[in-house]
């Protein structure tokens, strides 16, 4: 409940600022989001080779991710140190900002044969939650399509090794996928997402 309210407030503040035609001062969301560009790229579109793009991310998934990093619930190399620097209100403002930036797929090579196999696995095990081939932000489970390959590999490694806790049902699907197809299945899925 609390979270939704904050986001609504942020959207309102943003639209008020945008409505006046002269330069009316920078809004706080932009000020905050600008500090992330050095690592995530201008507007949250990462140039790679590994750091994820966060442009177009859904507000709920963003807020959940930042909180999980700050609490140490989600493994990270650096985000736990960054996420702890922001208040709940700051995070809500950035969630709004990044959700409004346009997601661009990472320009990278993908193996066509593997990605075709990956698509089959995806449709069977993952599509239910990561809809439209993992490209829809609104399903609040992260954008997988067009994400940088090493970042996808790191996440899959964290899930399969048990370092990152997956939502219960995802863990179940991931387990049955892994038991049947092993690391080859993981690789095919990654090729599929990075081909999109």
């Amino acid at each position: 409940m609390k979270k939704t309210k904050l986001i609504a407030g942020a959207v309102l503040a943003g639209s008020l600022l945008a409505s006046s035609n002269a330069f009316a001062g920078m809004d706080r969301a932009t000020m905050l989001a600008n500090t992330c560009a050095g690592c995530h790229g201008p507007g949250g579109v990462s140039m790679g080779p590994a750091t994820p793009s966060i442009a177009g991310i859904s507000p709920d998934y963003f807020i959940e991710s930042m909180n999980a990093y700050a609490m140490g619930d989600r493994p990270s190399t650096i985000m736990m140190r960054i996420a702890k620097g922001y208040s709940e209100a700051d995070i809500a403002l950035m969630a709004d900002y990044f959700s409004k930036q346009k997601h661009l797929s990472a320009p990278q090579q993908a193996d066509a044969t593997l990605s075709t196999k990956g698509k089959k696995l995806h449709d069977k095990y993952c599509e239910k939650c990561h809809t439209e081939g993992g490209s829809l932000a609104e399903d609040d489970s992260g954008i997988l399509a067009g994400q940088w390959k090493p970042y996808l590999q790191y996440n899959m490694h964290d899930f399969t090794s048990g370092n990152r806790e997956a939502p219960k049902k995802m863990a179940k699907k991931m387990k049955s996928m892994y038991e049947k197809h092993g690391q080859a299945g993981v690789d095919q899925l990654i090729e599929y997402y990075s081909s999109k």
């Binding site: 050095g38 790229g41 201008p42 990462s46 140039m47 790679g48 080779p49 590994a50 750091t51 940088w148």
Partner: peptide, 13 residues
């Protein structure tokens, strides 16, 4: 690899 990503992103910025 994140260090190299940082380099790419900050120089783009």
């Amino acid at each position: 690899l994140y260090a190299h990503s940082w380099f790419k992103n900050i120089t783009a910025d």
